[in-house]
């Protein structure tokens, strides 16, 4: 293949399909874990999100650059879909579901086209607050993890977040892993954080 082609042209739909089909077990696991994380605090499930992302990749509505790792690409697609679905749910317009097993029929559910009323907003805010408190309570024994969580939720990232926790890089990474693992175990259901 010529050098100028690499990166410039996206993968063809067939190449995308092949790249996904030959993923190693860790690749599949990574995709599923990312999908599960993106479904937390949402009202859809990981398998639907994965299926939708695969469909968009396979039909070419989302294109993967040749220089991009296929898993990173698919996680990016899932991020975008999850964000759209969350927004759609907040606006509560028409909501479409992924068709079950390769059915041709589009499944659509019409729900009220209304924005959150004051009561609903209060319920949503309370729910979010409650989830936040529950997460912090998981780390009641770990002040560093709580500081890190606070930083993350305040939008601090990277080096700034690391210096906030006063950990070296290795300690920082293992603390971040501990947070993820503990949340994973505490909330196995997709709808919880």
């Amino acid at each position: 293949m010529q050098a100028r082609d690499t990166g410039a042209l996206p993968l063809t739909e067939l190449e995308v399909k092949r790249a996904i089909a030959v993923l190693a077990p860790a690749g599949w696991l990574r995709l599923h874990k990312a999908a599960r994380a993106l479904c937390r605090n949402a009202h859809f499930d990981a398998e639907d999100l994965l299926q939708e992302a695969f469909e968009r990749a396979l039909e070419g509505s989302r294109q993967c650059s040749r220089t991009l790792d296929i898993v990173l690409f698919l996680v990016g697609v899932m991020r975008s879909i999850a964000s759209d679905w969350r927004k759609a749910r907040r606006r509560r317009p028409e909501m479409s579901l992924v068709s079950p097993t390769g059915s041709l029929q589009e499944v659509a559910i019409k729900v009220r086209d209304e924005r959150l009323g004051p009561d609903e907003w209060l319920a949503s805010a309370q729910e979010a607050n409650c989830l936040r408190q529950t997460i912090f309570a998981l780390f009641a024994d770990d002040g560093v993890a709580q500081r890190m969580l606070e930083g993350i939720m305040d939008g601090i990232a990277g080096e700034e977040l690391r210096s906030l926790t006063q950990l070296n890089q290795t300690q920082f990474e293992s603390k971040r892993r501990l947070i993820r693992r503990r949340i994973d175990k505490a909330f196995p259901q997709e709808r919880k954080p």
Binding site: R30, A37, R79, N129, M153, A157, R177
Partner: peptide
């Protein structure tokens, strides 16, 4: 109303993003 709602959701969404980043880095 929607802005308030988004504001409430943002911290959790940031946390979710951090979880995804950790999965990608593992």
């Amino acid at each position: 109303t929607r802005n308030k709602d988004s504001h409430q959701q943002a911290p959790l969404e940031r946390l979710i993003e951090a979880l995804v980043e950790d999965i990608l880095a593992a």
